[in-house]
Design a protein around this nucleic acid. Sequence first.
DNA 1: TAACGATACGGAACACGGTTCCGTTTGTCG
DNA 2: CGACAAACGGAACCGTGTTCCGTATCGTTA
Lengths: 194, 194
Amino acid sequence: MGDKAKRADARRNEEALLAAAAAVFVTSGVDAPVRDIAARAGVGVGTIYRHFPTRAELVIAVYRHQVDACAEAGPTLLADCATPREALTRWIDLFVDFLVTKHGLRSDNAALHTYFIDRLVPACADLLAAAGIAPDVTAYELMRGIGNLCVDAAPGYNPRNLVALLIAGLPETEPETEPETESGPRPGSRTAAG
Amino acid sequence: MGDKAKRADARRNEEALLAAAAAVFVTSGVDAPVRDIAARAGVGVGTIYRHFPTRAELVIAVYRHQVDACAEAGPTLLADCATPREALTRWIDLFVDFLVTKHGLRSDNAALHTYFIDRLVPACADLLAAAGIAPDVTAYELMRGIGNLCVDAAPGYNPRNLVALLIAGLPETEPETEPETESGPRPGSRTAAG
DNA sequence: TAACGATACGGAACACGGTTCCGTTTGTCG
DNA sequence: CGACAAACGGAACCGTGTTCCGTATCGTTA
């Protein structure tokens, strides 16, 4: 049970709604009108309500979807990147995306935050272990720190710059490549921060 | 300044609105529709908005009004009651009324809570001093304690009973009347607790 | 492939909230 | 009393979330 044979367009629309809602939430906040989300997804409002019984449930679904995507990106990056360290860097980039996107959601629902922690901390821990980061910092600590750096990105304060500094400073127990200089953190993986 | 010569009906309506809003908030909560408040006050919604620019400001005004009423009742009771102790008891009764009424408001606005404290603690302190209550308990402590007793009055839990116990136990440094028995707190001033 | 029934869709319509607007009423003052 | 500013009432407006139902589409079966 559970795998109801849903029609293809239904699945497509659900996916589109999740993506559209996420996008709209970024620009207009979590209180964006349902109609805006429907428009962005190119569907009618009725479609939203067939997939998500209520507005709140859509918000929750988006949140979980994003958490899942972030968690699942861990193993993928590990497999695709040249070094675990790069995978970690890239993953944190995704994580920051998520944080910046959803800065308003977590406070709403405690259960969501639990899900967030349970799902993402292990993913992060795996990356850290693979990259050979010393256990001086736990995954939770790191995520928490990054999260704190990302609270309200005002003009003139770009969280990504600070996060870049943070991950540049992460120690390694089994260093793979020796840094050439000690003079400062090199922006190893330039990200689309503008 | 400030005493703009307002028309009599205007002042009357403002007063009625404050009272009506307070009453509606008790039964329907702070989120009660503006229309309900207008109906209860026997005025049109337009009248609300002439007196209070926005719904939120009405809520604030009601809160302040209640705080003021409670604070000003202190001296009045002291003058009118047979003993300071009775004045204190009656005042606490008013205070509990207020707490039960406005259980939801304080969390909204920090400034309101400050006003609440600044205005009511001195009033309570005066009553305590007049009643000759030993400084074992400060006015703030007492109010805080009563406040805590009053959080969510569920069926089967009547905060007033507990508060009665509390004030019955207040020590006196200069007792004016010796209690006849020790067997239990006498309901000296029977209040409308039902 | 054609027909058909279940499934999903779109968006107008509804319920309900705060707020505004304006014709009417009423208090006040000379 | 008469006039005029002040205040009133409540219909109308706008922006929400949600429901409803006629229509379009998908997937299956003949």
